[in-house]
Amino acid sequence: MNNVFVYIEISEHNKVADVSLELLTKGRQLATQLGVQLECICIGSGLDGIENQLMPYGVDCVHVFDDPRLFPYTTLPHASAVINLFKETQPQICLMGATVIGRDLGPRVSSALHSGLTADCTQLEIDDFDMKVKQGDEFITRHYDNQLMQIRPAFGGSIVATIVNPEHRPQMATVRDGVMKKEIFDAGYKGRVVRHNAEDYIDSTAFVVRVLDRHVEAARHNLKGANIVVAGGYGVGSKEGFDLLFQLAHELHAEVGASRAAVDAGWIDHDRQIGQTGVTVRPKVYIACGISGAIQHIAGMKDAGIIISINNDPDAPINQIADYNICGTIEEVLPKMIKYYKQ
């Protein structure tokens, strides 16, 4: 009862997704602060030993649903398992990745349990909450201890809202990959493993959607974990313009990212988009080339250590958050950076 739960995403070869480990790290902090246990749910096929990847993050109980029909993920069977387990265990908090799976599953579970769900949280904290409610003709204040503050950007990143669900459980939140930090809690941590019989939780009629074909490629880059990011925007001007960015990135052992405008223009792959609807990065150095700095883009890179903006428009909004503004064109500046770096 009242514990913190994390839904674990499991990829091919039964590897636990980074985002799930990041959520376990955050979940451990929340559980400790609340004085409750951290539990997690693994749903898939051939999951023997999966707990070994999870326990070091301080998990007190791993729930396993192992059935050949449960991989690859389909909505209804996974939702049934989570919903029925939650009815039994009554968690107070449930965290999921804001991934394709988490954003498919989370709303389904929250709707079935009539609990609040906040998407794409960037911070999760415990705090008290006072809610004004109307009673008859008067407003009274109701006090709630130890609620989950779900903090997320909204309105395209122009505001940050704090969401609370005081009267419904579990308090559900999704968090994007890379937003929280992953940290081992105790390499020798020992929690329990509970193996459930999938048929007790999932009706056979839930298996109506069939995955006919599936192609997953290993990530072609490590933008999320890069120390240095060289990112290009609409000001790069062309697909060829990005070649210069790749050259600089090669020299600096950096990764190349892009703004939505450059992706939409077709100059670079969608999976390199940085921003609210793309990847969130927090490199040591962020070199913004011809990026004007829409708020959606800034939402995905503002935590970079040093921001260098190269732009021939001195009034580009990104210049306001940059540490260095180089006023000039990409063609002019990047070759010089490469030249002096090599020296």
């Binding site: 929250s110 009539h114 909450f129 990143g157 122009s158 505001i159 809202a161």
Partner: peptide
């Protein structure tokens, strides 16, 4: 079920 506790505008300051 969800309540908005607070809304903070992002301010773009130099």
């Amino acid at each position: 079920p969800t309540n908005v506790k607070a809304v903070k505008s992002i301010i773009f300051k130099a």
